[in-house]
Nucleic acid binder design. Structure first.
Lengths: 191, 191
DNA sequence: GTAGTTCTTGAACCAGAGGTCAAATACGTG
DNA sequence: CACGTATTTGACCTCTGGTTCAAGAACTAC
């Protein structure tokens, strides 16, 4: 039945994610997206319907991949404070080491589409909540490990860390690595 | 000499600032900018040269106005913690009360142009540093007032507050007022 | 009034955006 | 092999963006 798909849809979404991440939603043209995926514009529209829907898929992928990574990274050996500090540093360092500073797709999207596009807003909110939950779980574990004072409100701290993380991503776009690292140290000192 | 200007240049910049603030740099068309300023497109180009130059003027105005406001607000009576908390709350509340959530022009610009446009990046950096200096000065005063422990590093805390503020601006785009207020309380608790 | 200068304006320009479509292509089935 | 179906493609369409420009309008100096 019918001609078989000549490309992997998930791979195309992954490529699209890179483009959106680098250039933003409005800044990514169908032509670029199609070229990055190695297919024609027509195929892209046939497979995904619209640029907006493709973006939705890209956001979803970003969320899943990010959460999987965070879960694994936070579980590695070390104290809570050490792990959280390493996590924050890694995220900004990846950006500093990259050829082009693109920040975080979720943060970028929050600013570009937050409040204007209901679906995108909700998707970003879900992604942030998911990461906050992972951090909260890690802090709770820290309490069991005797790492973190029992009086600490894990959820509150986790949410605040997500706010801080967003701020770090923004700051990393305009300041240098040392400045951002210093801010991270201040942030985790409070834990 | 020649026909007199029929509009106030500074007022036009102020209107442009509003448009850029609401729609972003790329999202603001010359047509919109001209209409907001109440002049023709040609006049706009005659007076400002290009969209980019007009944006530079708008950023400059935003910086000046923001710094003037912060200076006055932080100097009002109250403890350091109270004033800083009120400052952060005011900034996000203005956004929540506005018909459309537009965040902070400096943060928006950091994300949209940071790393891509050298001039814009530097302008935002200057604006952030200026605000950080005002906060640091307020914290130093707090030390004199006996408000803030003498051991606190005012510069470090001020920089961290700016990171937090950026994060709050991002968060305010996707979460509700209560969530953001809670984050502010967590932030100032550390002071 | 004429000249010279500066400002204003809408029309016009080109490039690129987002999206559609008819034709061509590759499969399974009878 | 003919046929129905699903996919691919680049040409094509319309709309808007950022910018330029020629013409006119308002002023000063002579």
């Amino acid at each position: 039945m019918g001609r078989p798909k000549q490309f992997d849809e998930e791979a195309a979404v992954a490529q699209a994610m890179e483009v959106f991440w680098t250039n933003g939603y409005a800044g990514s043209s169908p032509a670029e997206l199609a070229e990055a995926a190695g297919i024609g514009k027509g195929s892209l529209y046939h497979a995904f319907g619209s640029k907006r829907e493709l973006f939705g898929r890209a956001l979803e992928l970003y969320d899943r991949a990010g959460a999987a990574f965070a879960e694994e990274f936070l579980a590695a050996p070390g104290s809570t404070k050490e792990r959280v500090r390493a996590y924050l540093r890694l995220l900004v360092d990846v950006d500093f080491d990259a050829p082009v500073r693109r920040g975080c797709l979720a943060v970028n999207t929050a600013l570009e589409l937050g409040g204007r596009d209901e679906g995108a807003t909700a998707a970003v909110r879900r992604a942030v909540e998911r990461s906050a939950d992972l951090l909260a779980a890690r802090i709770e574990r820290g309490k069991l490990d005797g790492d973190v004072p029992a009086a600490v409100d894990a959820t509150e701290q986790a949410r605040f860390l997500m706010v801080t993380l967003a701020g770090l991503r923004v700051t990393a776009r305009i300041f240098d690595r040392e400045t951002v690292h210093a801010a991270i140290d201040t942030a985790v000192a409070h834990l």
